[in-house]
Structure formats: C-alpha cells, structure tokens
C-alpha cells in the first residue's frame, strides 16, 4: 500500500493501530494475571489486576477520541474507513475483555478460604485457552492476516466445549458437598467470563476479516456452548 499524499494521515492511522496493539498487550497481561491470581488465590495480585483495568479504559477513551478526530479531519474512504471503524470496535472488545479479567480477579477474594485445589483447574485451563486465542487474534490484527483470524474464529468452539464440561464438573462438586456451592458458584462465573472473552475474541476476528475483505462474514459460527439449556442432573 503506497503512502497517503498527506503524510500526517498515515501517522494518525499508524498511531491508532499502535494504540490498539498496546491495548491488546495490556488486556492479555490482565487476563494472564487474573487467571494466576485466582489459581493461586493471591489477593494482592488480584487487587493489582483490579487497579490495572483503569489503564485499559483510558486507552479506549483515547482511541475513540483520536478516531473521531481523524474521521472529522480526513473523511476516510475504503480501507482507511474500515481501519478506523475496526479500531473503534476492537478497542471496545478489548475493553470488555479487560472488564471480564477484572471481574474474574475480584472473585479471588470470595474463594480465598478453604477449597480443594482441583476445583480451580477447569477455570485455569479455560483461561489459558482464552489467552491463546486472544494472543493469536492480536497477532492476526498486527499482521492484517484474515486467514489467521478465521482460524481463531473457528476454534472458539473448543472454548465452548470446555466450558460445557467444566459447568457439569462444578455442578457435580456442588452436589457432593453443599459447602462448596459458594466457591463453585464464583468459579462458574469466572469460567463464564472466560467463555465471554472467547466471544469477544471472535468479534475481533470478524472485524479483521471485514478490515481485510471489505465485507462481513456471512458464515454461521460453530457454537458449542449448551449450558443455557443444560438441566440440573438428578442424582
């Protein structure tokens, strides 16, 4: 792609992209630390994650402002327009990912008491998967690689499938020992957060596809989350 005749325009677009990359890096880091905090039941780390969310929110505000000014000044067309719109949308998904990481970290406080270690392994496994997906989609964005983004998009069903099995597993623990209902409920919400992070990651993948191809994905995304229709198993 040749440069714009107005070089300041190139600078503005490059800076927006760089800000999204920075925001993506922060979201990844927040997610990793949130999973770590809850796995180790480390409340100090959890508090650091909670405090760290502010930086992501601030970056989203800056990206929005810059995008609006760029639209007003340059009246972008074609892929420039798509890039700016996609920047705003991705920033919004990353902001939500940051919130979900923060919410997961918060639950560390609630489950910091007595609890068998094995209960948390499902959540950490799911967190790792969500983390990988997020990393891959951010790489795809940096490279403008729609094919790679589509791989992430398709593999979201892995997260959904894992979520289903953890959901059942946690239900079983709760039935076995009612004292575990509290912590398990928190873990369930934490796990749900990871599933939602996966959904935001697929949104980002869809936006990369739109950025590259100039059209929306029409294909139906494979979905495996069936927990909303799962009955409480009778024993």
């Amino acid at each position: 792609m040749p440069d714009h005749t107005v070089t300041a325009y190139d600078d503005e677009l490059a800076s927006l992209k760089q800000m999204v990359a920075q925001m993506g890096g922060l979201a990844e880091e927040q997610l990793a630390r949130a999973i770590d905090a809850i796995a180790k039941r480390d409340v100090r780390l959890a508090d650091a994650v909670i405090a760290g969310d502010e930086r992501i929110d601030e970056l989203e505000r800056q990206i929005e402002e810059k995008a609006i000014v760029t639209i007003a000044k340059r009246q972008p067309m074609a892929q420039d327009l798509r890039q700016i719109i996609v920047t705003i949308r991705i920033a919004s998904d990353l902001e939500r990912i940051g919130d979900l990481a923060k919410n997961t970290a918060k639950r560390t406080h609630a489950i910091s008491g007595e609890m068998p270690r094995k209960l948390v392994t499902g959540l950490t496994r799911m967190g790792k998967l969500a983390q990988e997906q997020l990393k891959d989609v951010l790489d795809a964005y940096a490279q403008g690689n729609a094919e790679k983004a589509m791989q992430v998009w398709r593999s979201d069903e892995d997260i959904d499938a894992l979520y289903n099995s953890i959901f059942r597993e946690l239900l079983t623990y709760m039935m076995e020992d009612p004292r575990m209902i509290g912590p398990c409920a928190h873990l369930l919400f934490g796990t749900k957060n990871m599933e939602r992070i996966g959904d935001h990651t697929t949104n980002i993948a869809e936006n990369i596809y739109f950025l590259v191809h100039g059209k929306m994905i029409t294909e139906e995304r494979p979905k495996k989350d069936s927990t909303s229709t799962t009955n409480f198993p009778n024993k």
């Binding site: 714009h4 107005v6 892929q79």
Partner: peptide, 13 residues
Amino acid sequence: APKNKRTQDYITG
C-alpha cells in the same frame, strides 16, 4: 470496498 487497487489508492488519497 473498491475492488481495484487504482480506485482504492485514488479514493483514499
């Protein structure tokens, strides 16, 4: 989403 590169380059400045 213009298809041709020349169109794209022109309309985006």
